[in-house]
């Protein structure tokens, strides 16, 4: 397994959110401010890496027939840890993400990587996969957050910069409230996916023509 390919897979070509379309529920629901996006992305990154390592280590012990239940037990224990840690040390984030932190247990990115990668590969590769896929997820969430926050609230870095208010860029009268609403989540996701696909397919086409 080469590390460079794994990195680009996680970031772009197999990006869990933008290409595999996994974990749509938090992607659409919580990407309304930079703080939420980064917090969610980091939590998923940590949980994904830990779960991948443990599941990879246990892959020869877990019986095939009950593997999903076993994965859920492993994932749920890490989610509980992160949930409690957030409640203790970053209560603001825990409050604004609310139910979506416990829901990481059934986040399809983590289950998907456990089933598709960690149960078939060694511990080192699985750890790297967790980090890269989690990073790809975090980048995608952050992009969505920045776009939606800018158009919908006119701010940058909400919850994080400027004492939690974010830096006001657009005047508050001119912002499109729709972008903060669920509608805006779907629109932004669609446009970002379209843009990523456009730029991913572009160089290939020119090469084919050149041939």
């Amino acid at each position: 397994m080469n590390v460079k390919k794994q990195f680009w897979d996680g970031l772009i070509t197999q990006n869990p959110v933008l290409v595999q379309l996994l974990g749509m529920c938090p992607t659409l629901a919580i990407t309304t401010s930079l703080f939420n996006g980064l917090g969610m992305g980091l939590s998923v990154l940590i949980i994904l890496t830990c779960a991948n390592v443990v599941i990879s280590a246990l892959r020869k012990i877990i019986p095939n027939k009950v593997r999903i239940a076993c994965y859920i037990v492993v994932i749920a224990s890490f989610v509980t840890m992160v949930d409690l840690l957030l409640k203790a040390f970053v209560p603001a984030l825990s409050k604004s993400l609310g139910l979506f932190i416990p829901l990481i247990v059934v986040n399809c990115i983590i289950l998907g990587r456990a089933e598709g990668f960690a149960s078939k590969n060694g511990i080192g590769a699985s750890a790297l996969d967790g980090i890269f896929q989690g990073f790809g997820n975090m980048v995608a969430l952050t992009i969505m957050c920045v776009i939606r926050e800018f158009l919908g609230a006119g701010t940058f870095g909400g919850g994080l910069l400027n004492g939690g208010k974010g830096i006001q860029i657009l005047p508050p009268d001119t912002v499109a409230l729709g972008m903060i609403l669920p509608v805006g989540g779907f629109l932004t996701l669609g446009v970002v996916i379209a843009a990523v696909q456009y730029f991913m397919n572009k160089p290939k086409k020119t090469k084919e023509v050149a041939k």
Partner: peptide, 8 residues
């Protein structure tokens, strides 16, 4: 519809 949502 979009304007209605965004600038009620």
């Amino acid at each position: 519809a979009f304007l209605m949502l965004s600038y009620p």
